[in-house]
Design a protein around this nucleic acid. Sequence first.
DNA 1: CGCATTTGACCCGCGC
DNA 2: GCGCGGGTCAAATGCG
Length: 165
Amino acid sequence: MAMNPLQNPSFFLDYHQFQDSSFSFMDLFDVSSYPLPNFGLEAETMASLSTEARTEAERGSMKATSIDNNSMQVEKRKKERGVGCNNRVAFRTKSVLEILDDGFKWRKYGKKSVKNTSHLRNYYKCLNGGCGVKKRVERDRDDSSYVITTYEGIHNHASPFFDMV
DNA sequence: CGCATTTGACCCGCGC
DNA sequence: GCGCGGGTCAAATGCG
């Protein structure tokens, strides 16, 4: 059984942030099938959820919303761009480490430098057979103490981490 | 020795 | 049609 993010002590939600967004609470449960942060850090975790979270995050339009520690902002957009954009979730996490072990096994397959920054973006693929979930990790452009992790796709298997729970 | 990572090349879609 | 930015591949490398 997938863990509900609400039950994860290291993952804080502030529902009130959501009321103006166009997403339903169910969306959170969709998301609960993602490897939500057992990042092993106590650091606050902010997340942005969106089918285009990645783009949004890059434009800074979402993270522009200043929120306190221990809160999360969720935003959902319907606009999808054809292929493969089914499900994207971007988490913005305060962490010095970029390797946030979420319980899944990832193989790095690419690295790119982000335009206009000296930061790098790393590309990972889920190791599980038949599970084509991808993941990107990059540093926040403005505040390098944050790491933006974007998941794309849905795992067709349970996380080993969930098994342990 | 096996395997994950590395890293430049390649590819593709989009905007000019 | 071309150039650029972003994403992926794959051969070589390094590590356990």
